[in-house]
């Protein structure tokens, strides 16, 4: 059975791109466009991995990560924060919130896919940039 990946991204075009790319790689996907819906989606769908934007309407990516990682039922789900912000402090906060990787949005698709692959096989690799 293919791995299921949840995507939370408010930019419709970028959401579509991740979705198409992941499907082309053979993954199952579920998508949400804001934090609250996204969190609900993860709780219902129990995906194998979550890719979330940082700045989102409602609950932001940091909060989503914290809420999932502090919950016994969902803490095993690897989280990739995919964002257009790249301040060191954003990455630091992401790490503190329990995210498993912090990737800048303009990073090559191949690198992102490698990180997904590694995380699905439980290898933590923090911070990959273009």
């Amino acid at each position: 059975m293919p791995a299921k990946i949840a995507i939370i991204e408010d930019n419709a075009a970028f959401r579509k791109i991740i979705d198409i790319r992941l499907k082309a790689e053979g993954y199952d996907t579920v998508v949400a466009e804001d934090g609250l819906t996204g969190l609900e989606m993860v709780r219902n769908e129990k995906p194998d991995l979550l890719i979330t934007d940082l700045m989102l309407p409602g609950i932001d990516g940091h909060k989503i990560s914290r809420m999932l990682k502090f919950d016994q039922r969902y803490r095993h789900i690897p989280i990739i924060m995919l964002t257009s912000r790249d301040l060191e402090e954003d990455a630091d906060i992401a790490k503190q919130c329990g995210a498993d990787a912090f990737i800048v949005k303009t990073t090559k698709a191949r690198i992102v896919l490698d990180v997904i692959e590694k995380l699905l096989h439980k290898v933590t690799d923090f911070r990959e940039t273009a």
């Binding site: 075009a13 791109i17 198409i20 790319r21 082309a24 257009s84 800048v104 303009t106 698709a109």
Partner: peptide
């Protein structure tokens, strides 16, 4: 960077034959 990411992602998808 946000619109750039969209452009890069879209063009890469096309180039990769997806």
């Amino acid at each position: 960077r946000t619109p750039l990411a969209v452009m890069k992602g879209g063009v890469s998808l096309c180039l990769d034959g997806v």
